[in-house]
Design a protein around this nucleic acid. Sequence first.
DNA 1: CGGCATATTGAAAGGAGTCAAGCTGTGTGG
DNA 2: CCACACAGCTTGACTCCTTTCAATATGCCG
Lengths: 226, 226
Amino acid sequence: MATLATRDDYATVRPLPAVAGRDAITLASGVVAHGTIVPVARDAAIFAQEDEVAHVYKVISGAVRVTRLLADGRRHIVAFYFAGELFGLEAGDTHQFAAEAVVASRIAFVRRSAVASEAEHSGDAMWAVWRLMAQELGRAQDHALVLGRLNAEERVAAFLRDMAARAGSGDSIDLPMSRTDIADYLGLTIETVSRTLTHMERLGAIRFAGARRIHLRGGRPLAKVA
Amino acid sequence: MATLATRDDYATVRPLPAVAGRDAITLASGVVAHGTIVPVARDAAIFAQEDEVAHVYKVISGAVRVTRLLADGRRHIVAFYFAGELFGLEAGDTHQFAAEAVVASRIAFVRRSAVASEAEHSGDAMWAVWRLMAQELGRAQDHALVLGRLNAEERVAAFLRDMAARAGSGDSIDLPMSRTDIADYLGLTIETVSRTLTHMERLGAIRFAGARRIHLRGGRPLAKVA
DNA sequence: CGGCATATTGAAAGGAGTCAAGCTGTGTGG
DNA sequence: CCACACAGCTTGACTCCTTTCAATATGCCG
């Protein structure tokens, strides 16, 4: 199914240790740590599924997808991250997921130890990390609800609403990811995603301006989910 | 769809403030807080979806389900919790879910503020709460993968494996929840759950001892997922 | 022992998947 | 600057897994 992104397909980006810590990265309001901003090409890996957890990441510009691969090749996208968002926070020492740039992006690498020591010394930082974790948990639970109980139309509508809030401006949504990415995020096939979007356009709920730019019309697809 | 558990169906259990704090509850190894152990009847609510977050809970005995209800009545089960497990930890001030006892259970109510102050004073407690949160996140992400990319047989197999590890003894699984609960957890219908279990029995992968007691045979259903 | 909730089983329908062409549009080379 | 080429997207026809609708069966509890 679909084109797979395995570890060997792309070179993993590895910032030189020597230059790490050059930039001041704002993890949360008031919480700043040193890190390195690295340009990452489209589809290049930021970390792989077996990598040791060494950093926490912030999207400076562009977009990131976090994925899991099943042994038989099925792919699941855990989450997308956009400019300003943090990702890569995991409890264990080995990444359970892989992360790749959806489009050419600039990613801040902050050493996990830097975040940890920041959190130990400052209640604010600790609190910020906690909030981030809680937000991730909420997103994952929402995602499970979408995958467990919504039909194709509802899933795509929920996705568009989420994207409108996070990657859109006004009623215009800029989708940096492919239909394959959307399908793997929503537990559907690319054909179903495509058909559903076409159907929504026919209904007048959305309008296309190229395959990856969508205008919402009258918030019609918003009506469904809690 | 299915029998619905709405807020009005059951009386919510509310421990008397006067008796709160009578028992010493172990939240994690070495982290103890005062709380109250309350008996909760089968299907009785522990908290409802709109309730203010006042407590953190620990299952002393029995089992708990945490659910979400869609406006049209569709139900999604976020998670099950068994003896020894903690639940109810949420970031906001209002519960996003409801919790009910699956069977008659004993639940420890610990004031959230007690946990918070414990965490503020002790690095250990803080760390324990963090670990719990991270574990929940991992579970939610695993659940999303199951719902997004596995078929009915694989979902049930994954469920049985999880139950064997958490609510079983050896190769024997004691399922306290109904087929409806399982279906709402796995994003299936009760008929599909039932048929799948029957099919697994025909294949010799499991053996029934009553509808809610299952013996695994040779770990056959374990073969599928990562 | 009866009665009701829970579970199983069957048959038919439907929504999403699969397989297979085309189409579009973006990037590149002539 | 135009045109080709390839990746990505759309559309169509058909299949299949899961749902839906409908009876039974089972079993727990009073």
